[in-house]
Design a binder for these strands. Structure first.
Length: 883
RNA sequence: GGGCGAUUAACUCAGUGGGAGAGUGCUGCCUUCACACGGCAGAAGUCACUGGUUCAAAUCCAGUAUCGCCCACCA
């Protein structure tokens, strides 16, 4: 039974109905009790505040391709979905919303504010997941997780406590990156450095005893209010006299010493450095080495403190900078200033310039955690694709620094540390202690800080599976198979997952890491919401359909390169969708009386075009599998595109039409219909991971058994289908047809005009093939007749061509333009002669003959022979033109 | 300052040692009974530049130029 198909494929309708169908049927769900081998991917959890951008689209399309491929190929495929609570980002969003209502979070208080964030999350947090569904993502939604779920929070506390007890976590007063706007510390990774234009000011500090002065340079003059020393290199001869002196710090009443420190670069400026231990990471270390006081002059709000002095207290740091410069200048301490481009650290969430400030923070000692993670990549337990990223990974891991994990915000996992107000006992535990075990009386106050969001992300591969419980999910699906991600979070996330996986699971979190391209904007910049340069994938889906969009992303996803999405490519693949639809429509018309079993397992074909297309198909299956297996999605897309459009549609279906129309009899119709359906059905299964909706829509209309293409098996190449003879014969036919068509066009013969063509052949095998395929060549060449084995001279004025070393000519009813023909043939001859010259050069080179591999020499000889024949025939043809 | 990557047709990009490719666009012809979101036939490139290795280089090596990214405490 066959059904007729609508004129056009309707993506919105199809996408919605099939997605619902799959969901209801439970095909997305992975069973941990299954006997099948597992294939697991955990999603890089998008921020709850997120909405789908190109990066997500590419990332999730790739994951869905992998998951659908393995699911069809007989694996128990789990794609674990979820979202990330995104501490700072989410808090910022809700704070902004509150601000619009004129509310400050401090007025609400912590508890109420957190409630509000939860409300926000319930209301808007699912948006991104719905958007992922529009892409066709076949996640196991039943297992959806959120990094602040009870279970995951428990895992976070467990990890914190264990790390603390083993001495990996410590607390201390250190200089950290501080965002005055988000009002929290940031890890080094969360600071983005950008080149900015600024000024380098040169300041004069006079010696207390009037015996001289020292000139220092700074881009942040306001920090001089917190200077506690001037440092010079111990070997800097310029300052020998000044050793041991003290200097007046301008604008203050303080005196500061001159110290020696090898940190100073004698080549830079005056070689003297002002030292502000409280506001510069280097100066902090110098301060530690020399036991200098640390004077905090900039507050957590980014304003000047009391310590900065009366005239500056309360000023914003930038207002203060101006005032300090003004005052220094007025009092004669400003030597000068110059334009200066330098790197400035900014908050990765709000772009505010960060301020290095001393505060009490929690840190994780990384070195010992990093070692096993380095080894896991070194010994291949984790493979990174493309490999070039390994180097970057090692570089960072080998120079890893301690991780500041505390954040002074409210939205996140509150640090599981309590202090007893009675005896100051510090309690670190997974669950909130009921009372102080030491004094039993004091009140317990939990640490105010929350953990860096990436702390919980680092546990994602096992926390989502129920750790620390020993769950069936963990046993079945951990370690995961492949992590698909962009390189922008290689350190933030991937490296930390490896470390935590090794530490707490004793095994790698994933066996493969596939690092895909970053989708950039037209200027090559990273697309990001804060930059406002995003192109909306949903618009692409609305405009061209999810299948075309997915296929485009796959076609662009060459390993290790960035993507700049061109919309006309999406349009091109939308046309491919249309092509598949229409080809299917054609094939479906001829399936009366064809059984599903015959389509799935067709008998050996007899007719050459049927043998040929099945041979081609078996090669394509192989290359698509290879491409998927090695993450070459562009090759997979390319192979199948080329096959389906240019081989199946352009050649095969055209050759099949006479059979379809019944011109070649009942048997031919039957065999061809079965073959066409078989190739179509197999192609749909090959295409399914790339184009899930379209393939399901068509597959459901085929008379094959099964409930859905997404649980049908992925094609396996049948080597018995490989048929070199058929491919060679078809090569002759297609070349002849192309030759005829070319002659027609070149000779200006209208398609409607029926003409005669002849072949002059001195090759029996060639002639035999032409004889067998005569009718096809005539039809597709739009020939009235094809004369085989023409003997005698080529008629004067006939247009000629050389095909596979044999001569083809057409007998036009109207005389061809001999001059135009001469020009055409001469041009072709010129080309052949040029090529021949190259080949002759190679083959007359004894070095080439000696050193090149025999097969290469052989190939060149064949080319030479072929070119010689072409040359000869072209010359003859030219001569036969007369004159 | 260190590292990585890019430079191939008008555009967007594949191609990593043996006769330069795709999609789009362009030119010409075709309203042929799956598809004009189509068919057929074409034109189009000093593979950034300079050297080197090799019988053979878009492909490997060195350098140059331009662009981009990542990392880094140089005031």
């Amino acid at each position: 039974m066959t059904s007729s198909m609508p004129k056009h494929f309707n993506p919105p309708e199809s996408e919605k109905s099939w997605y619902d169908f799959w969901l209801k049927a439970g095909y997305f769900h992975a069973d941990e009790k299954s006997a099948l081998d597992p294939y697991t991917i955990v999603i890089p959890p998008p921020n709850v505040t997120g909405s789908l951008h190109m990066g997500h689209a590419l990332n999730n399309t790739i994951q869905d391709i992998l998951i659908r491929y393995r699911r069809m190929d007989g694996y128990e495929a789990l794609w674990m979905p979820g979202t990330d609570h995104a501490g700072i980002a989410t808090q910022n969003v809700v704070e902004k919303e509150l601000a619009d209502q004129g509310v400050d979070r401090h007025h609400l208080g912590r508890e109420q504010f957190v409630d509000r964030v939860w409300e926000w999350k319930e209301k808007y947090g699912g948006v991104i997941l719905e958007q992922l569904q529009r892409l066709g993502s076949s996640c196991d939604w039943v297992r959806e997780r959120f990094t602040m779920d009870e279970g995951l929070s428990r895992a976070v506390r467990e990890v914190f406590v264990r790390l603390y007890r083993e001495g990996f976590i410590y607390q201390g007063d250190y200089i950290t990156n501080w965002c005055p706007r988000c009002h929290t510390a940031l890890s080094d990774l969360e600071v983005e450095h950008h080149e900015r234009k600024g000024k380098l000011y040169h300041l004069r500090y006079p010696a207390v005893d009037g015996s001289g002065e020292v000139v220092v340079a700074t881009t942040r003059p306001e920090t001089m209010l917190g200077d506690t020393a001037v440092a010079v290199h111990p070997e800097d001869e310029r300052y020998e006299d000044l050793h041991g002196r003290t200097f007046n710090l301008p604008l203050t009443h303080r005196e500061i010493p001159l110290i020696n420190d090898t940190f100073c670069n004698m080549e830079f400026g005056t070689g003297a450095v002002k030292v502000t231990p409280a506001h510069d990471p280097n100066d902090f270390e110098i301060g530690e080495r020399h036991d200098l006081p640390k004077i905090t002059v900039i507050s957590l709000e980014g304003t000047m403190t009391h310590e900065a002095g009366e005239s500056y207290e309360g000023l914003d740091r930038y207002a203060c900078r101006e005032k300090v410069v003004h005052d220094l200048n007025e009092q004669g301490f400003l030597v000068g200033s110059e334009d200066y481009e330098h790197s400035v650290g900014q908050c990765y969430r709000c772009q505010t310039v960060i301020e290095p400030i001393i505060s009490r923070q929690w840190f994780v000692r990384m070195k010992d955690l990093a070692q096993p993670a380095i080894e896991a990549v070194e010994d291949g337990r984790i493979q990174i694709y493309p490999e070039t990223w390994k180097k970057t990974y090692y570089e960072w891991m080998n120079n890893i620094r301690d991780w500041c994990i505390s954040r002074q915000i409210w939205w996140g996992h509150r640090i599981p540390v309590w202090t007893c107000t009675g005896c100051e006992e510090i309690l670190v535990d997974v669950d909130e202690p009921v009372s102080c075990p030491k004094c039993g009386t004091g009140e317990l106050h939990q640490e105010d800080d929350v953990l860096d969001t990436w702390f919980s992300s680092a546990l994602w591969p096992f926390s989502t599976m129920g750790w620390p419980e020993d769950t069936g999910t963990l046993r079945k699906f951990y370690p995961t198979s492949c992590l698909v991600t962009g390189f922008d979070i290689l350190f933030f996330w991937v490296a930390r997952m490896i470390m935590m996986g090794m530490k707490f699971m004793g095994d790698v979190p994933f066996r493969h890491v596939y690092i895909h391209a970053l989708v950039r904007d037209a200027d090559g910049h990273k697309m990001s919401k804060s930059r406002g340069n995003v192109i909306d994938p949903l618009v692409m889906i609305d405009k061209y359909g999810a299948d075309a969009f997915r296929f485009t992303l796959a076609a662009f996803a060459a390993m290790g390169r960035d993507v700049r999405l061109a919309e006309d490519r999406v349009e091109g693949y939308r046309n491919f969708v249309n092509k598949i639809w229409n080809a299917s429509k054609l094939v479906l018309q001829y399936l009366d009386g064809v059984e599903g079993d015959q389509i799935i397992d067709p008998p050996m074909a007899k007719e050459i075009q049927n043998r040929w297309i099945r041979s081609r198909l078996s090669f394509v299956i192989g290359s698509v599998r290879d491409a998927f297996d090695s993450y070459r999605f562009n090759d997979a897309a390319g192979s199948i595109y080329q096959f389906f459009w240019h081989e199946f549609c352009d050649w095969y279906l055209e050759l099949a039409k006479p059979s379809f129309y019944g011109d070649k009899g009942e048997d031919s119709l039957k065999e061809t219909a079965i073959t066409a359906a078989n190739v179509l059905e197999t192609s749909l299964r090959l295409l399914h991971p790339l184009m899930p909706f379209l393939t399901e829509e068509i597959w459901q209309r085929l008379p094959v058994k099964g409930d859905s293409i997404m649980i049908a098996s992925f094609p396996v190449a049948d080597t018995a289908d490989r048929d070199i003879e058929a491919e060679e014969s078809m090569g002759v036919a297609t070349d002849l047809i192309t030759g005829v068509r070319n002659l027609r066009t070149e000779s200006g013969i209208k398609p409607s005009e029926r003409i005669r063509a002849s072949v002059v052949s001195d090759d029996d095998a060639f002639s035999e093939i032409v004889r067998v395929l005569k009718k096809d060549i005539e039809r597709l060449g739009r020939l009235e007749s094809l004369e085989l084995d023409h003997v005698g001279p080529i008629p004067e004025g006939a247009a000629t061509a050389v095909v596979k070393g044999q001569v083809l000519f057409i007998n036009p009813e109207t005389e061809v333009d001999a001059e135009a023909e001469r020009v055409r043939l001469s041009k072709e001859l010129e080309k052949v002669v040029a090529e021949l010259k190259k080949v002759n050069g190679k083959l007359s080179n004894s070095q080439f003959l000696q050193k090149a591999p025999p097969e290469v020499v052989e190939k060149n000889r064949a080319i030479q022979a072929d070119l010689n024949i072409q040359k000869g025939k072209l010359q003859e043809n030219l001569e036969s033109l007369g004159k």
